[in-house]
């Protein structure tokens, strides 16, 4: 049955640091690479080398320009994948029971053998975390790399989702968000981790860490320090001094 579990023993999920993400899309590529050859049907591409390529991805990186009240605009790279919501609307709408949330660790999965490809779960998800595979006719979504995190054939450091393992900036963190003492929970508490679209009532497990304010050069406290950054030696010596004097004569 596609009832949601009352509670889950653990709440495995991701914490994504919008301050650190550099927008390199390495997580997108590693996600596609791992998941196209492991759990379930491959992530197909259509017309991959043609004029109109499109394909199935479980993780995508948007980029936003943010204009704060004061200061310079800021570019924020924004990776987005399934948030493994506690109150996942994609699970309860499923007519076949293919979509389910695990009681043990809270991971939301699709049993592809039961999926009829009606697409209703993708409609129910406000985040666009589910994509129908055009070749297979079944719904694909982030599995939190369920075939890595418990995989005893992998070295300990590889037992994390592929996106987390590959991120060169350390912008992605994996752990149990149900345990208040876990590294990820402490990170969320420290940095003011937030939910996406809280008003939709989905209670996402994944959290996003907001970007720190920056680019205040020329304003506020930094402006007061500006005089100390002025050049100290005005009278250049040697060859550079000759060049300075020669150019000044023009």
């Amino acid at each position: 049955m596609t009832d949601l579990p009352e509670t889950t023993d653990r709440k495995l999920g991701l914490v994504i640091d919008l301050d650190t993400c550099v927008g390199c899309h390495a997580c997108v590529v590693s996600c596609k690479g791992w998941n196209t050859e492991n759990y379930g049907a491959p992530l197909s591409d259509r017309d991959p080398y043609g004029a109109d390529p499109s394909g199935t991805f479980l993780n995508r990186v948007h980029s936003y320009e943010v204009e704060p009240e004061e200061g310079a605009p800021q570019l924020v790279h924004f990776p987005k994948s399934c948030l493994h919501c506690e109150d996942a609307p994609c699970v309860t709408v499923c007519p076949t029971g293919a979509s389910f949330k695990r009681g043990a660790d809270g991971i939301v999965l699709v049993n592809e053998a039961d999926c009829i490809g009606c697409g209703l779960c993708a409609w129910a998800c406000p985040y666009g975390a589910r994509e129908m595979d055009a070749a297979e006719g079944v719904m694909k979504k982030c599995t939190l790399c369920v075939d890595r995190i418990y995989n005893e054939n992998l070295a300990q450091e590889d037992r994390v989702p592929a996106c987390v393992r590959t991120c060169p900036a350390g912008a992605r963190h994996f752990g149990d968000l149900g345990d208040p003492d876990s590294d990820v929970s402490r990170l969320v508490a420290e940095r003011g981790g937030m939910d996406l679209m809280p008003e939709q009532g989905t209670t996402p497990v994944n959290k996003y860490l907001p970007p720190r304010p920056r680019d205040t050069l020329g304003t506020g406290a930094r402006a007061a320090q500006a005089p100390s950054l002025e050049p100290v030696a005005e009278d250049a010596q040697g060859w550079l001094g000759w060049l300075d004097r020669a150019l000044s004569r023009f």
Partner: peptide
């Protein structure tokens, strides 16, 4: 609310 980002948010580049 979708991005949780402060200030005015503009989509700069799609994924």
């Amino acid at each position: 609310s979708a991005t949780g980002l402060p200030g005015r948010v503009r989509a700069f580049e799609p994924p």
